[in-house]
Computed example of a mutant assay.
Amino acid sequence: MGVLPINLRNQVGSAAEYVAISPEKISKTPIKIDLIQAAALPGVGATAIIALKYKANLRKGEKLLVRGASGGVGSIAIQIGKMLGAHVTALANEKHLTFLQELGADEVFDYKETSPTDLKKFDVVMDTVGTDLKHYRRLLAKNGRLVTIGFPSFSSFIYILTSTIFGSRRVRTFSANPKNEILKELASYVDSNKVRPVVDSIYRLSDVAKAHHSLETGGGRGKRIINLLDKK
C-alpha cells in the first residue's frame, strides 16, 4: 500500500491498474485485513498519524476535538487519538454519531446543531474542513494546537500563516506525503487492533465518475474505494 506523491501540477492519486512509484513510498499491507480494506488506509491513516502524533504532539490525558470526524481522515483520527490516550470529542453529521462512539469517541456532537461557542476548551483541534478556523482556534487552551489539512480560501491561508507567528495557540497545516516508515507504523496499529479502516462504499473502475460524485456530495462515512479486481 502507498500514496502517490503530488506532481508538479499539484495533482495527486490515480485510478489505474498499474502505476510507477518509488519503493520508499510503499509498504506491505497489514496482515489482518484484505486488500479492499487496505486501500482505505494509506492516505487518511498517514495523515492522521502525522497530524496528531508528529505535528500536534498529542499527549496522554489531553483533550482532542476532531472536526469532520466521520470522513476518511476523521474516522482514523478518532482511533489514533484514543490510542495516544486522549479524551476525544467528535463533531460530525448526526446520522454518524453512534458509529463514531463505536470507533472510540468519548463525546459526539451534531455539527449542524453545535457551534464553537457550545464547546469547551481543547488541547488539540484536528480540522478536516478548513473553514471558520478562527472560531475553532478560540477553543484552544493555552499552548493548544489546531492542525488543519485544508484551507479552501486565500484568507484561510493568511490566517494560518499569521497564527504561526503570533500568540500561543498555533494553527498548523501540512500536506501528507508519507514515506514507508509512516505506512509501516500504520500497518502495525492495524495488526495490533488499535486502528481499523472505515470503508464507505466500493466501486468498479468503470464507475469511477460515480465515486467522485459521491465524494463531492459529501456526508459519507470513511473512504470510497475503487476495486480494480472487479471487472464485471
Rank of each mutant, 00 (worst) to 15 (best):
G218C: 04
R196Q: 13
A56V: 07
K179T: 14
G150Q: 01
K134W: 05
A38D: 03
D230R: 12
G68Q: 08
I49N: 10
Q37D: 13
Y203C: 05
L140Y: 02
K210R: 12
N227Q: 12
A48N: 04
K63T: 07
V124K: 13
I182A: 14
Y189K: 12
A209D: 13
L183H: 07
F109E: 02
L41V: 00
K82H: 10
T29D: 07
T114K: 08
S168T: 15
V3I: 07
T29M: 15
V195A: 13
S14Q: 14
K60E: 09
S201Y: 05
M83P: 00
K82T: 10
G219S: 06
K134N: 10
E216G: 09
L41W: 00
S155E: 02
P23H: 15
S27W: 11
V129Y: 07
S27M: 02
A38G: 09
P178C: 11
K121T: 09
E216T: 08
P23L: 15
A20W: 01
R59W: 00
G144C: 02
I49K: 12
L215I: 12
L161A: 15
I160C: 13
L58S: 03
K142T: 00
F109G: 02
L161H: 10
V44P: 01
V147D: 01
V19R: 00
S14P: 10
S14R: 11
E216D: 14
L100E: 06
L161Q: 15
S14H: 15
A15I: 11
L52I: 08
L228E: 10
V147T: 00
Q79I: 03
S175W: 14
L103G: 02
I31S: 12
I149C: 08
F151H: 04
I78F: 02
G167V: 11
K232Q: 05
N7T: 02
K55C: 08
D110T: 05
K142C: 00
L133C: 08
A105D: 15
L215H: 05
